[in-house]
Design a protein around this nucleic acid. Structure first.
Lengths: 341, 341
DNA sequence: CTGTTAGCGCTTTCAA
DNA sequence: TTGAAAGCGCTAACAG
């Protein structure tokens, strides 16, 4: 069969409808529909099936999404709302989510911003929603997602919706234990926003590890910071000006850790000689800083796919429980940590 | 009117249809439809209008997206495909695009990956497509987007589709001129991928500025690099080992610039004493590096909104030309550039 | 093994 | 000023 002229830009013919395929194959639309959607219960003559398939291919048939959605009441798409696209963590979560969604035949539609704003835009286009905003919003529980099934990703604070998280507490404990094992005792914590679930759980992991080592972290060893360079710089700077000065800092976020590194430098302190630094979440940039940043790598991709898995179950009417991804966090030791001198 | 019980989680009633609204208002669906969609040609009694509006509000009516799309053959959504979400540049472009799209009543659906892969997923859900992949793909022009109207963002290499770009060449020239004005003559260029439009245009700007200053850049002053830290590190490292060594480097991307900074450091070179560095595109992280990175800031947000503007025109059947956003690039001088010693 | 039928929720002529 | 009617493209009983 001769391929169509590659450089032919004729007037665009309207896309083939199911009806066109059916007519071309000499069958009814209902047969064509069932053949094309792989209806297992259908018994059809091999030849009929072949004719339908062949016609669909020849006409480049693509089912009309709107018509199908109207009929089946399913859009076969799921939405995901994240605070910002720039964030490596969320990009990684989205990657895992997308892979899992595609495998199930769903499209993943990503939107940035607040749930309230964005939901209007994608409402009606999706069957369910992944909410990946870490900061608690003042949203009434019942409103989140409106009538849509919702799964919370990377937070589990809102009752009424199943959540999928990673073990932030274990990750933080791992980071803190690394510093403790190097001999640090006075370890400061550049904490995440305490109105966010992740911020609180990371702080809890830090506190737990400290106490397990017999060190009670004072209240002023922990300062909240936004998850960005500016926040990290500010809080680390305050921590590092305290007297006595902490010999190490566990920072609850990579971007904030970059800010903390800058803070140390601006105070004339060497890392890791004067102060050790551990960041949370890994990112390519960590290997290109001076010194290279020691971090804790979390199973973000798995979290994304697990979240879709849960949402799929929800859409299916199956019962869903809160999930904590079991892949253990991983300490990536680089140059920003050393024993105190 | 008493608000509904906030903590009431009764069985979810099915969403109200237009028909429900019409019945509640005691009118036909056609009237309700026209009142609610603000049909200007419609003449209705004020009271009728009020009843419809009131019923819609009371029933929390939300038009069914699929039904409307099926009928009107418009989804009121536009897609945008970008190579990766992590990239600040694309995140900024998406921001501008989203703002403009919302204003026009369109939802912006962002997808990552290759056009070929992603298009399948969002096909049928969008009316038009913004393609923001900088690297040339081996896609036949007519295939890009299938039957969908397409606008190219940040690239203009494929004929057959209008493009919206920023003046990368002017931006690169600006960066290069800055180095020249500091007295540098032997300026190396960590170029972007030369199979990408942006990479080529940035290199062209560099070459143009050099020649305008009477310096002919040798072939080995320019080394291609991927737009990430690893690529920048590799190419900068090679450039900085040449003899004689360049006194400055213009790097075609921020992430690559971070890699270049690392390369200099690893070679024992101080920035800006031994070598000056300018990056392309600004990012928050630039202010927290050592030294802080001098960059060129491009009007990315404007590019995003202009791209939507063009796509809207295309959807409207209006003729569309290639657009170069006129907002001039901006040099952000920080600590990574100085006169050669 | 295949076809008939009805209808998803909406918009839009056209007629009253 | 309002209503009746048709139909967008598809799926899923149900009949044959």
């Amino acid at each position: 069969m001769a391929p169509p002229e590659p450089d032919e830009f004729g007037p665009r013919r309207p896309p083939a409808r199911l009806r066109d395929v059916a007519e071309a194959a000499g069958v009814d639309t209902s047969i064509a529909s069932r053949v094309l959607s792989g209806d297992g219960t259908l018994t059809v003559r091999p030849d009929t099936r072949r004719r339908v398939l062949e016609a669909a291919t020849r006409l480049a048939y693509r089912p009309n999404t709107a018509a199908r959605a109207l009929k089946t009441r399913k859009t076969m798409a799921i939405g995901m709302i994240v605070p910002e696209l720039t964030n490596v963590a969320y990009a990684t979560i989205a990657l895992g989510a997308d892979e899992r969604a595609s495998r199930a035949g769903y499209a993943l539609l990503v939107a940035t911003g607040s749930v309230r704003d964005r939901l209007d835009a994608i409402d009606g286009r999706i069957d369910g929603l992944l909410v990946g905003i870490a900061t608690s919003e003042t949203i009434r529980m019942g409103d989140l997602g409106g009538p849509l099934p919702v799964v919370l990703v990377n937070r589990h604070e809102l009752v009424g919706h199943p959540s999928v998280t990673v073990d932030d507490e274990a990750g933080s404990a791992l980071a803190t234990e690394h510093l403790l094992s190097l001999g640090h005792r006075h370890i400061g914590h550049v904490a995440g926003p305490q109105n966010s679930d992740t911020g609180r759980r990371r702080q809890a992991g830090y506190v737990r590890a400290m106490r397990a080592a017999g060190v009670e972290p004072a209240q002023d060893w922990m300062i909240e910071a936004s998850y960005d360079e500016a926040g990290g710089e500010l809080s680390a700077s305050r921590l590092l000006r305290e007297i006595p000065r902490p010999t190490a800092l566990f920072v609850a976020n990579v971007r904030a850790a970059i800010g903390a590194l800058a803070a140390a430098r601006r105070l004339g302190l060497s890392v890791p000689q004067d102060v050790s630094l551990v960041g949370f979440h890994d990112a390519p940039v960590a290997m290109y800083l001076e010194p290279e940043l020691t971090t804790v790598k979390m199973p973000l991709r798995e979290m994304g796919s697990a979240a879709v898995e849960s949402l799929l179950a929800l859409l299916d009417g199956r019962p869903v429980e809160d999930i904590r991804v079991s892949t253990p966090p991983e300490l990536v030791v680089r140059g920003s940590t050393a024993s105190p001198r």
